[in-house]
Design a protein around this nucleic acid. Structure first.
Lengths: 207, 207
DNA sequence: AATAGGTTTAACCATTTGGTTAGTTTTGCC
DNA sequence: GGCAAAACTAACCAAATGGTTAAACCTATT
């Protein structure tokens, strides 16, 4: 039997308790939210004693906040550099669509988790202004001056693009139940979605 | 002092306990969801004894289900007749946009409440197939044959339109926090939104 | 006024739940 | 091996919470 080397169990094959807790907490919180999650459930999933949760993370609030911060930073694709690239506004939006849709395909629970948490307590958000709206708007107005895009309200437009990317993942359960499509059908739909949205984006922006 | 007339207090000016409970339960459940709501909170808001909740509605589950069913039926605008009207697909979609956006402006908590509930237990939905997808799709294909609309995937398109209508109300807290707009700004945005979406719809559908 | 039935209340109950603690085991180091 | 610190466990605790009950209170009818 392999034994851990250091007291803090770093650099060992054995998964540290802390990591096991974080993985379990992520799964439970993401699926059930703060109110719907139980500390015992997290402990059971991690295969450890419930007291360990408090030993490592002090309280449910602290553990939740840890998970939320990590998940919140993952919610939006990393497009900081994109905003300053020498490509058209339309292309920037299309790249965002591609990135965000694929990101959410791999993290389908993310949107509902984030929205619920912020809905309950919007103090969480303040720290990170990750929606680079003003950068995108600037790019839009540059292209508008060059008559490369139609005249419209950029906030309304970007809100619409984000809506088309994110909302399907929120409405999946309703959609699947009400028009009777399977999980596989939904996945196919989401696979084709970036192309479809990009077509809409171009149609809307074409001057 | 006005006294109630009948034993069951029907037809009196005095608001019946049952109605007070339903109003309070609606407010609390809508804001906090099932897990986040407390029976005591509902009783306090209704200004009645907690035991009354069980006297009239037996259990938290039963009370919640009562509220959910009512709210779920309000989530989607009544457009049954619309589907059979002799107007173009584009016009039908535009009318839906107008109706749904305005409906949600008056019930901004509705989408998150519905989505959360169905996410936790999608058995709720089965009963009412209120998304008249097939009706709309039929109308689309009629217009496609007449070359009045562009060739696209109607499910993807209608999902997009619904996204643009509903998602802003879900993302309001994030939006307001991250790009720092006030409740009034948001209301103005939502006031202008139907027109903006309809412009997008026409641009996308134009053959 | 007496009665009977629905309505309301306060006190109570059992369970769940986040959190703590005292003591035991493991681990790294001398 | 011995020791001290860290990791871990089981048992426990107090508060919260959904739910119940027995008694009191109205209200309409007789």
């Amino acid at each position: 039997m392999v034994k851990p080397i250091s007291q803090t169990m770093e650099k060992t094959e054995k998964i540290s308790t802390e990591v096991k807790i974080l993985a379990a907490a992520e799964e439970v919180f993401l699926k059930s939210g703060y109110d719907g999650s139980r500390m015992q459930e997290i402990a059971d999933l991690a295969g450890i004693n419930k007291a360990m949760l408090h030993y490592y993370f002090r309280s449910k609030d602290a553990l939740f906040e840890r998970i939320f911060e990590q998940k919140f930073s993952q919610f939006f694709p990393k497009i900081q550099e994109l905003t300053t690239m020498p490509i058209s506004f339309t292309e920037k939006v299309c790249i965002y669509v591609e990135l965000h849709t694929n990101l959410l395909r791999q993290n389908p629970y993310l949107p509902l988790f984030i929205i619920n948490t912020v809905h309950k307590n919007n103090d969480f958000v303040k720290k990170m202004p990750l929606l680079l709206f003003s950068e995108f708007a600037k790019s839009y107005y540059t292209d508008l001056a060059a008559n490369k895009v139609k005249d419209l309200n950029p906030l309304q437009f970007l809100m619409s693009v984000m809506s088309m990317c994110v909302f399907p993942f929120l409405s999946k359960p309703i959609l699947c139940s009400s028009i009777n499509i399977s999980d596989q059908d939904f996945d196919t739909l989401m696979n084709n979605r970036p192309e479809e949205i990009k077509r809409y984006v171009r149609a809307i922006l074409m001057p």
